[in-house]
Design a protein around this nucleic acid. Structure first.
Length: 940
RNA sequence: GCAGGGGUAGCCAAGCUAGGUCAACGGCGACAGACUCAAGAUCUGUUCCUGUAGAGGUUCGAGAGUUCAAAUCUCUUCCCCUGCACCA
């Protein structure tokens, strides 16, 4: 294999060692020009996978580019240790989870060591080390490792306390009731797709049922739960299950009848719940009547087997005109009850529910799948286009979408209804207990709904650099939508204790909003220059807000650092942060820090997924482990892969074949550069100028791309286009030694941010310094040679045309005759272009002008034909085409010089003529087709 | 529910904000040739259809519209996907 020529494993190791020994990754103030970039720090939850490296790699590439552009770069990193991930991991170790233990062993952990990982803090320490040594350093990242920090250190906790004191001063902390998932055994649990806490139901949604209080004759309440409170106007009857035993319960001095399952749930959601022992079989209720609140209509209670005791209250109100389930049950009950239509909606007649059932051929309550579908159809249609009709009193004429909450709130305020939260599916805790939703009466929130804060944040976001553009336009809407966030929780989670309520801990999103500021002082903390004890509110006030005075020199230094580095120029994170971390990051900065310290840019990248678009999941093992991949493909190959495989703003599927291609390309470039050689005296003016000119165009494009963080375009130019250029040069028999050397050194400098190890290795074949410290190539306008660019363009056009002719005619050429345009055509063309530029293209004028030349009289017919086509041609030209025609190039001379090349390519004789010459060989009279930059061709 | 993203040739994926340079960048795959004992790698060419002279035809989810001109703008429609609600 060719690869063995390029020993990437040792080369990577060697340069990493030298870089870090030389400490070139450590940020310092020198150049009066700074760039602060960081990625959203990872949670500490286990081994990472190749997907995570995408964003990290972007950061390193950008930071390396910036340092080569003359910036002091601060690229710190840390660990988000708060919350449950590490606790979850420790729990897995504790319960001897087979997969987890195996994974640890596979990664070289001993049994003794594994035992220690039942402590979440040990988990944090262990994985922090893994991330740094096995991932980040292995990838050559110029992270300033002296600033590593995590969110459960004492210093960080002081910092978060300070932050919450500030929020409180600004009245951005509020207390109100909240509903949250809760396990009766384990306390608060997280219901999320990765299922850290739960063994089932990770993707459950929390539904908000309205409980409408229907009154029985004796005053007890039959609470019907619904997601569509506005349909109360269409209620014709009630459904209870005939075979279920309902039970009485006293809630805030009212007696309710509902299912046992419901009572269990209610105890978590209402303040005073007194379970009464009296049981009532469903059968007993059937046949009675009750009163619809607000409307005061008497309706019968009927038997409905679809009334599920596990869903909400187990009591269902019946709206047969709009609910397919109710309609079918009514039909089956054979009762003479007229549906009441309350919503007019396009596409439906007098009974939408019936029509939907008919459409799907539903005949029984047991056809739940079809019924769900029918319900969905009716509901969606009614929600978006439905209008309430005269049966709905004061709501008549209004749209469902605008009225929904109004009906509900109205009923609640009149005490005719209540609400109840419920999961859309069963959620089972790791301990096998059923997870419920519990009301927390006095939860603390960060008040992100605050109008002034929202407005200021939106205004500020307007001024930020946000990538991609789509996210920039999305973010004001997100800020509007972003509601108060429950900021603390109770339970065994890692994090900072909440200063205003004992035993509660600040939750992980809320403790990660201002954190880049902490990177400014984490190196001082790590070096023991300042202790957590010293980090009081006064300290942070002084450093971050400039309030008060410095207690000592260290404080002063930190403050200078803060003022130098802050704000953050780019915060880079995956798309999962779009509606979570980034909004609070912006809002907290706006709330607490002055304008000049607020973040300047956001960069959101999408994911690397498994094949089939499945998210690579940490908990499920994921795709290739990082170390393994780094060994298989090489780090530079992976860096190039991330940068080049797709736009940062789409998900890419991990595919080892494709990564292998990048590996080959790296080896290939390495090999190519070894082989490139030239001679001292092999200059070829046209071709050499072309190479220099083209290289400068590349530099310009690459630099533009990097400035816009378009790593894909930049790396495409560097690793593909530049290679094509030098190969074209060689193919065209270029051989200028000095020039080739210059090209190579520029080329590898261009590569450095993306494939630093490769670049460093190549650079050191001729240099002693680190290429990582070199200045990035600059575009030099004076090295542009349009003439030679046009020449090569002409040559490629001619080659293409000849190929096309050969393809169609299938002849084997013996000799190719090329006729370049006559001078007069060129003149006219230029004239026409100039006129078109000034918007006064006039054919008549051109003709007249030409005909004033007596020499042209003889070819008047040809001239008029040519001129006639001009306006159409010119209209079609792009700017770059247009410029090409304005350059003066002696086409015949140029092609004459390139004859050897053409001979070689087509393996036959080549003859070049100018149409202006006399007595040219042209048996097929092709010469008349010759136009500027498009010579006529005749092949024998 | 709320907020958003997307449908481009066999596949992945640019382009779409500023309509013409777009038969549509690039990569992968496929085919042919070169190199090689061979495989791999690499290099060259082809890869929507038609075509014995550099051309023409039909394409960018579907339908309609604006325009001299639309993958790009507008409207309608179908289909996928993501985020959020004490995971981070």
């Amino acid at each position: 294999m060719v690869i063995k020529n390029y020993d990437y494993l040792n080369i990577e190791k060697k340069w990493q060692q030298k870089w870090f020994d030389a400490k070139i990754n450590i940020a310092s103030r020198k150049k009066q020009k700074k760039f602060f970039i960081h990625f959203a720090y990872p949670g500490v939850s286990g081994y990472l996978h190749v997907g995570h490296m995408r964003g990290f790699t972007y950061c390193d590439i950008i930071s390396r580019y910036k340092r080569m552009k003359g910036y002091d770069v601060l690229f710190p990193a840390g660990f988000h240790a708060s919350g449950i991930p590490s606790v979850g991991f420790a729990k897995k170790v504790e319960r001897n989870d087979k997969e987890t233990i195996e994974l640890l062993k596979k990664n070289g952990c001993t049994d003794d060591f594994i035992k220690k990982l039942v402590d979440p803090k040990k988990v944090v320490n262990y994985f922090s080390g893994v991330y740094v040594n096995n991932y980040w350093k292995k990838f050559g990242f110029f992270i300033d490792y002296t600033r590593l920090m995590n969110t459960i250190s004492e210093g960080y906790k002081r910092f978060i306390e300070w932050q919450f004191h500030k929020l409180n001063e600004k009245n951005l902390l509020v207390q109100k009731p909240h509903f949250a998932p809760f396990c009766p055994n384990c306390g608060p649990v997280a219901v999320d797709k990765s299922e850290t806490d739960v063994s089932k139901g990770g993707s459950a949604e929390i539904l908000d049922f309205t409980i409408i209080k229907f009154k029985l004759k004796d005053g007890t309440i039959l609470p019907a739960a619904t997601l569509r409170p506005e349909t109360i106007f269409g209620v014709t009857n009630m459904w209870v299950h005939p075979d279920i035993e309902y039970q009485k319960v006293k809630i805030n001095n009212e007696v309710w009848i509902c299912s046992k399952e419901c009572i269990e749930k209610l105890t978590y959601q209402f303040e005073t719940v007194e379970i009464l022992m009296e049981k009532i079989p469903g059968k007993e209720l059937i046949g009675k009547t009750c009163v619809v609140p607000e409307i005061n209509r008497d309706v019968p209670i009927l038997s409905g087997v679809f009334a599920d005791p596990t869903i909400a209250t187990g009591i269902v109100m019946s709206v047969p005109a709009h609910a397919p389930y109710d309609w079918i049950a009514l039909v089956e009950s054979k009762k003479e009850i007229q549906p009441i239509k309350i919503i007019d909606v396009k596409g439906f007649g007098n009974n939408p529910a019936k029509e939907a059932c008919d459409q799907l051929n539903i005949t029984s309550q047991t056809e739940t799948k079809k019924l769900d579908e029918a319900t969905d159809i009716v509901y969606k249609k009614e929600f978006h286009t439905g209008v309430l009709n005269d049966n709905t009193g004061k709501y008549s004429g209004l749209q469902i979408s605008e009225i929904k909450d109004a009906v509900k709130n109205d009923l609640i305020s009149k005490k005719l209804a209540a609400t109840m939260k419920e999961f859309s599916e069963d959620v089972i805790c790791r301990c096998k207990e059923k997870v419920v939703i519990k009301r927390i009466p006095d939860q603390w929130f960060i008040k992100y709904s605050d109008e002034a804060l929202t407005r200021k944040s939106k205004d500020y976001a307007e001024t930020m650099n946000i990538f991609p553009q789509e996210y920039k336009s999305e973010i004001p809407k997100i800020l509007d939508w972003f509601d108060d966030r429950a900021a603390i929780r109770k339970g065994s989670w890692l994090g900072t204790p909440f200063p205003f309520k004992k035993d509660w801990i600040i939750e992980p999103i809320s403790d990660s909003t201002l954190y880049p500021a902490y990177y400014i002082l984490s190196n001082y903390v790590n070096q023991g220059k300042i202790s957590a004890k010293e980090m009081t509110d006064k300290f942070f006030d002084y450093i971050f807000l400039g309030l008060g005075t410095a207690k000592n020199k260290i404080w002063e230094n930190i403050k200078v650092d803060f003022d130098y580095w802050y704000p953050v120029d780019i915060n880079l994170g995956g798309k999962e942060h779009k509606t979570v971390h980034f909004p609070v990051y912006v809002m907290n900065h706006v709330a607490i820090l002055p304008r000049e310290k607020r973040p300047k840019g956001l960069f959101v990248h999408w994911w690397v997924t498994q094949q089939g678009r499945e998210k690579i999941s940490k908990s499920k093992g994921g795709a290739e482990p990082i170390l393994e991949a780094a060994t298989t493909y090489g780090v530079d190959a992976m860096r190039l892969y991330y940068a080049h495989v797709g736009s940062p703003f789409v998900d890419v599927e991990w595919n080892s074949d494709i990564v292998t291609k990048y590996k080959n390309r790296i080896a290939n470039i390495w090999k190519l550069i070894q082989q490139l050689s030239g001679k001292e005296d092999a200059a070829n003016e046209n071709l050499d100028n072309w190479l220099i000119s083209t290289l400068n165009r590349r530099i310009q494009k690459i630099d533009d791309a990097f400035e816009n963080y378009d790593l894909r375009v930049a790396s495409n130019e560097i690793f593909y286009e530049c290679q094509k250029d030098i190969q074209w040069y060689m193919k065209r028999r270029g051989g200028n030694k000095k020039l080739i050397e210059k090209f190579i050194s520029t080329w590898i400098t261009l590569m450095t941010p993306v494939t630093p190890h490769l670049a460093e290795e190549l650079w050191h074949q001729n240099n002693d310094s680190f290429i990582s410290n070199e200045t990035y190539p600059k575009f030099k306008p004076n090295e542009i040679s349009e003439k030679d660019e046009v020449g090569e363009y002409l040559l490629s056009e001619v080659t293409d045309d000849v190929n096309e002719i050969l393809k169609v005619t299938k002849i084997t050429p013996k000799k190719i005759h090329i006729y370049v345009s006559p001078a007069w055509k060129r003149e006219i063309f230029r004239k026409a272009l100039e006129m078109a530029d000034e918007n006064r293209l006039n054919i008549g004028l051109i003709m007249k002008d030409i005909m004033s030349d007596p020499n042209k009289k003889a070819i008047v017919k040809e001239v008029s034909q040519f001129v006639g086509k001009l306006p159409g041609e010119i209209k079609k030209l792009s700017d770059s085409d247009r410029n090409r025609y304005l350059v003066t190039l002696k086409e015949a001379d140029f092609l004459e010089n390139a004859k050897d090349y053409l001979k070689k390519v087509f393996s036959c004789d080549i003859e070049v003529y100018s149409a202006d010459d006399k007595d040219i060989y042209d048996p097929a009279y092709k010469v008349r087709f010759a136009i500027p930059l498009r010579p006529a061709i005749y092949i024998e």
